[in-house]
Amino acid sequence: MKTHVHTIVFLSIFTIFLLTTAFISLSSIGPLEQNKTARNLVTSLYFKDPKVQRDAAKGKLKIHPDRFATDVLSYLNPYINYPLIALVFSVLLNVLSLTLLKRNENLAGSLLMCAALASIFTIIPPIIQAISGYVLIEKDKLNTSIP
């Protein structure tokens, strides 16, 4: 194996670890309506709305902040599954890319690019995946340009 392949294997394993950690932390949030951090965030955003500030100054709030937070969070709660599915899909593409790395580096690089798209809402994993995928796809061009 070439040294760039060893580096990509290490980076892929590290990325799988990061994505698994993100999955565990995101799935441990539980129902958003019961999450204090999410509730406080929505309530603070509610009070930053100029119309709410005017209504609060007049003493005529149309909806109580707790009710607003409950409504918003219960609406958003079903959508928490989409990032979880994307994380699992990204991990599966990473594992598939690792298994195909010895046979077809271009396909492995393309799968890493797809995994980067699936995990785009995270920060570090898509950067690592995109760079690794680019190196695998463009390795022939990179090797010929280096003297």
Rank of each mutant, 00 (worst) to 15 (best):
N40Y: 05
S12F: 05
T21N: 12
K48S: 13
F14N: 14
S25R: 13
S12V: 11
P31G: 12
A38Q: 03
L32Q: 01
I13P: 01
V52R: 08
Q34G: 05
I16R: 01
F10S: 07
S28D: 13
V9G: 02
A22R: 03
R54F: 00
G30S: 05
L41F: 14
S12Y: 06
L41W: 10
T21Y: 05
E33W: 01
L19F: 01
F14W: 09
V9P: 02
I29H: 06
F23S: 07
R54H: 12
V52M: 04
L11M: 13
F23K: 12
G30F: 13
G30I: 11
L18P: 03
V52K: 00
G30M: 04
S27W: 03
F17G: 12
K51T: 14
Y46F: 15
Q34H: 04
N35P: 05
K51I: 15
F17C: 03
G30T: 12
L45D: 08
F47L: 10
L18V: 07
N40M: 07
L45H: 04
S12A: 10
V52T: 06
Q34E: 15
T37Q: 14
T20R: 01
I24Y: 08
R54N: 09
L26T: 08
L41I: 03
S12R: 03
V42C: 00
E33C: 09
F14C: 09
Q53A: 13
Y46D: 08
F14G: 11
D49G: 00
L32K: 05
N40T: 02
L41V: 05
Q34W: 03
F47V: 06
A22E: 11
I8R: 03
T21S: 13
Q53Y: 04
D55V: 04
A38T: 04
L32T: 08
F17H: 05
V42K: 00
V42N: 02
F47E: 11
R54P: 00
T15P: 03
S28L: 10
L45N: 15
I8E: 03
L19N: 06
S44G: 09
Q34N: 08
G30P: 07
F14R: 13
E33F: 02
L18K: 04
D49L: 08
G30D: 09
N35G: 05
F23W: 08
I24Q: 11
K36H: 12
K48R: 14
P31F: 11
L32H: 03
Y46I: 08
P50E: 11
T43P: 07
T37M: 04
L26S: 10
L11N: 00
L19Y: 06
Q53E: 14
I13D: 13
Q34R: 11
T21V: 03
